[in-house]
């Protein structure tokens, strides 16, 4: 058995702009692949060339060098109809068309499959219904697209792309204007579409957390202008993610895969205990820039602020306490505690 060839394959691709005789190269020497059923997220800082790459892959602009093959054929050799039947896009362009139902909008996706007058036959209607069902937007079918919320419209736009029956789906920041639950839902939807329908999906996003948790593959544009790909975990372990996104302001925690603002102050605290209260007390202290230790032996250290929580009833309103150089203070809430610590720091400086 031969191994299946990838649906999307970039070989030594160089992208950028050509103005008169000058070439402005945005990214070069990209060689990556995407297989059937894979959900990939394209990550990279603003202006790194994410949109340029999508535009090149969808043939809106020509590549400067190298090649792209779609399902085994050279991108340049495809007719526009062939291309539209293999690759569909969801763009950031706002689509607001009065008097157009969501169903009709999805129906526009049949464009490369219908005849000269665009008449929809029974198979076209079935495909539209399938696409709306797959994106869970069937209940929106009769609504006007102008009445849809951002999340609903985005799902209808994905259904429209599906109605094109492509093998590859490219999405340009589909989660940009969505609230958090809609973002998670949409990403989960895309991942399921890739896995269940065998689509190759590539989406650009700024939502690193979500990409780390859901993508099969990450395509990462680095500061050096190269494109690296791998499983999210690979990119965490080899330090590429950290390198790409860490700065003086933000630090990447390799253990958790989270980015946190760099608020490191060099102050240290001790919290002993394992209850839920202790856990969130530690979180609050980390947020305030503390290194938190749980080692009881270091109790004698004068630099160390010992923090804790009294059990219900015992301390009344002042449940949270700190002991600093033998002096004990009580606080009604974590807000009071962290506020006091930061004020103390300001006076120390």
């Amino acid at each position: 058995m031969t191994t299946p060839s990838p649906v999307l394959s970039l070989s030594s691709l160089e992208i950028g702009y050509r103005a008169r005789r000058r070439r402005r190269v945005v990214l070069s020497d990209m060689s990556v692949q995407l297989d059937r059923g894979e959900f990939a997220c394209l990550l990279g800082p603003n202006g790194a060339g994410k949109s340029t790459l999508l535009r090149t892959l969808s043939r809106v602009q020509p590549a400067l060098a190298g090649g792209v093959s779609l399902d085994g054929d050279d991108l340049r050799a495809l007719t526009s109809g062939d291309l539209a039947r293999r690759l569909a896009v969801v763009l950031t362009d706002r689509v607001q068309i009065a008097n157009l139902s969501a169903y009709e909008l999805v129906g526009l996706g049949r464009f490369p499959h219908t005849g000269y007058f665009g008449r929809l036959g029974p198979e076209d209607h079935e495909t539209i219904e399938w696409a709306m069902e797959a994106t869970q937007s069937g209940h929106l079918a009769r609504r006007d697209v102008t009445e849809l919320s951002d999340g609903e419209r985005q799902r209808v736009m994905i259904a429209r792309a599906l109605a094109q029956e492509p093998k590859i789906l490219l999405l340009d920041e589909p989660t940009a204007f969505l609230d958090l639950p809609s973002r998670v839902e949409l990403t989960a939807l895309l991942r399921r579409l890739a896995a269940e329908r065998g689509l190759a999906i590539l989406m650009t996003t700024h939502d690193l957390d979500l990409a780390l948790r859901t993508a099969d593959v990450l395509w990462l544009i680095t500061d050096e202008g190269s494109l690296e790909s791998g499983a999210p975990e690979d990119l965490v372990l080899n330090g590429l993610l950290e390198h790409a996104f860490s700065s003086d302001e933000v630090v990447f925690d390799r253990a958790t895969g989270h980015f946190t603002p760099n608020r490191h102050t060099g102050r240290r605290a001790l919290v002993v205990g394992d209850s839920l209260e202790h856990h969130w007390l530690r979180e609050a202290l980390v947020r305030s820039g503390f290194d938190v230790s749980r080692d009881q032996d270091s109790e004698g250290d004068a630099e160390l602020i010992h923090c804790g929580v009294t059990s219900e009833g015992e301390g009344g309103a002042a449940r949270w306490w700190t002991v600093q150089q033998g002096e004990r203070d009580g606080f009604a809430s974590l807000a009071d505690l962290t506020r006091w610590l930061s004020r103390q720091r300001q006076t120390l400086q």
């Binding site: 809106v60 039947r85 896009v89 362009d93 068309i97 157009l100 490369p112 000269y116 007058f117 665009g118």
Partner: peptide, 23 residues
Amino acid sequence: ALSMKQLNALLMGENYARSMGLN
């Protein structure tokens, strides 16, 4: 009459129309 389908594709804007194969 012959361009009704094309005009429909243009409803979504130039970029989408092109992505669906319209010249």
